[in-house]
Write a protein that binds this DNA or RNA. Sequence first.
DNA 1: TTGTAAGCGTTATCAA
DNA 2: TTGATAACGCTTACAA
Lengths: 321, 321
Amino acid sequence: MTNIRDLAKMAGVSVTTVSRVLNNHPYVREEKKLAVLDAIKKSDYQQNINAVHLSKGKTFLVGVVIPYSDHPYFALLINGMANEALKENYKLVLIQTSYERNKEIEALQMLKQKQIDALIICSRICEWSTIEEYTTYGPIVLFEDTKGKEVSSTFIDHYKCFLFALEYLFKKGHKKIGYCIGRRSGTNSKYREAAYKDFIEKYSISNNPEYIFDHCLYFEDGEKVVSRIKEMTDPPTALLVTSDQVAAGIVTCAKSQNIFIPSDLALIGFDNQPIAKMMNITTIEIPLAEIGKKLFLQAISDNKEVTNEEIKVHLIERKTV
Amino acid sequence: MTNIRDLAKMAGVSVTTVSRVLNNHPYVREEKKLAVLDAIKKSDYQQNINAVHLSKGKTFLVGVVIPYSDHPYFALLINGMANEALKENYKLVLIQTSYERNKEIEALQMLKQKQIDALIICSRICEWSTIEEYTTYGPIVLFEDTKGKEVSSTFIDHYKCFLFALEYLFKKGHKKIGYCIGRRSGTNSKYREAAYKDFIEKYSISNNPEYIFDHCLYFEDGEKVVSRIKEMTDPPTALLVTSDQVAAGIVTCAKSQNIFIPSDLALIGFDNQPIAKMMNITTIEIPLAEIGKKLFLQAISDNKEVTNEEIKVHLIERKTV
DNA sequence: TTGTAAGCGTTATCAA
DNA sequence: TTGATAACGCTTACAA
């Protein structure tokens, strides 16, 4: 495999000159440049990128921590990042954690090892203090509110958002409102839980723990929700469903169980995924691709300043409320 | 940032000894080892992985070329790879091409630049000859039949598979059979087209170009299919749908249009995605996660031998035929 | 405008 | 069992 030294020999110049033409630096006579270019052509030379990385101390790689890659929510987010990465000549390294703590730490280690220039954490499992230990090794960007902390973020105010949706349902006459979330322990879920608690307190609604459904991530999870509702003596009349996928599953399954939507059960989904549009599901639009883009841009920004940008969401009224 | 030389100084040993400790090599006295370990602890030392890569000529990174990351088909495939990568201590670098040729070439370049140890191409857009130019730079593995070529692969025999499904429908009495595919120009589609052609010839069925639906990738694409069928004077009685996602979309949409499944329209999906199970869709199971695993293993195998493994698929009978 | 040589942080060879 | 020292392939002061 030809290296820069071979090239120099072939072209009858120094390695510096070769490096200069390789990197389009000034100060090289046209004649020598041509000689180098010629040598490159003849030799099937290819830069060893690791050597460049080592020398420059930069890799143009950005790590992305996600729990699963097979969920549209994260897929949309990644799409946003990937498109931007392409433009900026970066590559994305996917670190799929399945919510295992040690895999998230591995991602953090990659940053420390300089294998990646920055790290984007889309869904965190580690305690905050652990993340904090790594902030000195490079930019870490989160998809959750980190105001007051020393890292940048782009995020949704899930508390506000959830409360808004609950009150919207309340105004439509619903008093028995339940909700479906992914994992109960997530940061987002905490905010949503808080919003729910404040909501039922404000309107003096009695708390019914049965109305909270967790492990709702995929279309097929809608089935469990419907069958549990079927069994209830006092079922909810409306549901906030934190993924359109699940909402679509509920709609599909409800039909076959003779539960009418929205008359028997009103539904608000989240994300405004294509499936929501097709199935006419009222949903809260979350611009995931845009968020992905912003997260990425924050990650590669040289500017050391910490920024925390809240992304506004809005309700799209369709036929399930 | 502490490096191995600092460590050596601190521990009062040579860099070699430090490297030995770091890599768990033999021949280092317990006492010195402890000294090194102690220095590591005190110094917040972290290996620079690029230097390791440069020195070893290996990165433990495998590139994965996919068109989109937001489709369950590819997501499942990636999941299979990601799990295996984890076990083997490799990382996956995602190269999303959106079927743009130059992005696929970029991936090939990464291999040449030694930024990745191997490349897995899940769906190819480049001509074969282009791929071939890069085979000397490292293992390239394809998810398509490459028998007779100098690269390894794990693949489905889409011709056989399609023909089997067509004959299955034929045996059930269907004569007007259509199919839905993703992109017409893909390698897989060519095989399927050939199977279809041979099928209608064999059974003297007249060819109706209307029965072929392309750009069918997502759930929401089912809508277009249904509306087009609605408009036909002589609609198909059965459909082969190369993604369960689309099949699910068709089922959902058909219901609202009073098309009864399977009596008005029989459906065979592909993949056996969770949604197919939930919606009781008859489908051809393609073990994508397993395929992903095999592709990955072929990619990192030191063994220079070219292997081409065909993965058998089978029909899962449910309620849409 | 060009080139020498000193890094970058490792690993590997070889002699001791 | 240890340690100099030479790679690995590139970039970049600095000197010329």
